[in-house]
């Protein structure tokens, strides 16, 4: 059984086809990279998987069942977590409360949710910030908070949308370490990222898309040297 796959996934916005007949599979326990130039449809794919947009046609299969058509919160309950490229903290809550709110996804009592949240904050290195309001965090910490909040929902599959964009090299290195730790804890990761050395370092396999279609797939080095990928990013000579 395939752990996660999309089958002929297509999304039209009026006359614009943002995702076009895209099929890919993700194996349990791997870090799967999704790359492509700006506007190629990476975030749209995430929005389709998590049910923010309805799909036009095709199928999304997760652990043996189709999940397209489910509302977002049910997809979350099934074990898919995500972060947003443009971070969406609950601005008027503290860091801890942000994470507690998501920990309620799999906790039956407040004490259990708080314990889970503290554990996740430790894991993400945000424990020292726990009592600050979320709106006062630096961009690096906000991106961490996105990850912490997604982790607290207890996901099996985590979708990370450009969690490294705008970070300093030091913060990026810490981020790479964090994502490895997440994978080592048994969570499968799909990552959208523009920063090539992050992708090359982290991913087991990469899919490159442009205009919503696959242009290359395989091991990181293979894809990075693929002629079609280089053309998509830099244009033809």
């Amino acid at each position: 059984m395939t752990y996660f796959e999309t089958q002929h996934l297509t999304k039209n916005f009026g006359g614009l086809t943002a995702v076009n007949d895209l099929s890919f599979a993700v194996h349990q326990g791997e870090i799967f990279g999704l790359i492509g130039p700006n506007g190629s449809g990476k975030t749209t794919v995430f929005n389709l998987i998590t049910g923010f947009y309805p799909i036009t046609s095709g199928a999304i299969v997760y652990r043996g069942g189709t999940i397209h058509g489910l509302p977002t919160w049910k997809i979350c309950k099934q074990g898919i977590g995500r972060t947003f490229q443009v971070v969406k903290p609950l601005r008027r809550m503290t860091v801890l409360d942000n994470v507690v709110t998501s920990a309620f996804n799999r906790s039956s009592s407040k004490a259990e949710a708080v314990a889970k949240a503290l554990e996740v904050l430790d894991f993400c290195g945000l424990r020292t910030r726990q009592d600050q309001p979320a709106k006062g965090l630096t961009i690096g910490d906000r991106k961490r908070l996105e990850i912490a909040r997604a982790l607290a929902t207890g996901p099996d599959l985590l979708l990370l949308d450009e969690t490294m964009a705008g970070l300093t090299p030091q913060e990026q290195a810490e981020g790479v370490e964090l994502i490895r730790k997440i994978r080592d804890s048994g969570i499968t990761v799909i990552i959208v990222e523009h920063i090539m050395h992050v992708i090359m370092n982290l991913c087991d396999r990469i899919l490159c898309i442009n205009y919503g279609q696959e242009i290359a797939a395989g091991a990181p080095l293979e894809v990075a040297n693929n002629q079609a990928v280089i053309e998509a990013y830099l244009g033809k000579e």
Binding site: F52, P71, T72, W73, G81, L90, T101, F104, R106, A150
Partner: peptide, 12 residues
């Protein structure tokens, strides 16, 4: 505070 974020946190 943020409906999109709430939904991805498993809130109906």
């Amino acid at each position: 505070q943020n409906m999109d974020a709430a939904m991805i946190l498993g809130i109906n």
